[in-house]
Amino acid sequence: MAKRNSKKLALAFFLAPALALIIFFFIIPTLLTIWISFTNLYNWKIDRVKEFVGLQNYKDLIYFIQHDPDVEKVVKTTLVFTSLTLLVNVLGGLALAIFAYLIDERVSLSFRLLWILPRMTPIAVFGLLWYYFFYGSELGTLNSVLLRLGVIDQPISWGSDPSVQPWASWLIIIFVNGLVGVSFGMVVFYSAFKSVPRELIVAAKVDGATTWQIIRHILVPMARWHLVFVTVWQLLSLLTTYPHLFVLVEWGVVDKNYGTTWSLYVFLTAFSKAVNYQALAAAAAVILVIIGAILGLIVLRVMKFEEMIQPPRGDV
């Protein structure tokens, strides 16, 4: 009996802080967001959280998607951004991992580090890098290089010139987020390749396989599960990420609507002084939560998760 209690005590001691934070900053906020989505909360007038409007916010949202050209652009941007960036991140990550695997470990280490630098860089700094890389006058790096090479003869305002929209904005957000996201696939695939038994590769070489055949028939098939995992996981993070996009939109690097995905739309609807409509934002967020939960459950299914949650063997 005493033993039972001491174990409970230990558990409470070890788990309490993390559980408290999870309850206060994940569980309760999620429930609250769902609640807010059925109310008429705007301008942070918190008393309005008691004003129930039923499904009105969701109806509005559907109406906006159908009839508000700005929201329509947001939906389009979300689809294009998510699918293309996903492609870039998965295939780019795979390519980088293969390249890094093929060359000398010490050389590849510096490349792998270089490519995770964007992920670690403060968002404001990373935004700044591309702010003037894509700047609309000849002071922007891209414009100046293209002018110099004679590809264009007038600097182009990538973010605002209507003749290059929506693709200029889309390509910029895909490029910037791709640089941040591609390293995830690279790291996962690289470690998957590293765990392929060396003997397999040596044996293939002895059998006369070319490097390409080794990649095609050994490395990639062995990383099949990782490919699925990275794809679903990246899809999830691309749907939910918004800080980099926020910076690009707010600083005018890209068009306001063609640079805004659903996540950023939620954020701006809730927090920008011009809209300040929290209830609508909450409804939009709930849709995101539902999609997120479905994809998350898929990840749980796909991952060899049950292996990882096996009970510890030596619990006294």
């Binding site: 999870i22 900053f25 994940f26 309760i28 906020p29 999620t30 609250l32 967001t33 807010i36 909360l41 942070w44 918190i46 959280v49 996981w233 999830l236 993070s237 749907l239 939910t240 918004y242 996540s263 950023l264 939620v266 954020f267 809730a270 927090f271 929290q278 934002a281 909450a282 967020a285 709930v286 995101l288 939560v289 997120g292 939960a293 994809l295 998350g296 459950l297 990840v299 749980l300 991952m303 998760f305």
Partner: peptide
């Protein structure tokens, strides 16, 4: 694992409310 990939933007509204 699910929370690891939770849409943070859905939380920040409620957290700001609190």
């Amino acid at each position: 694992m699910l929370l690891h990939a939770f849409p943070g933007v859905a939380l920040i509204i409620a957290v700001y409310f609190i």
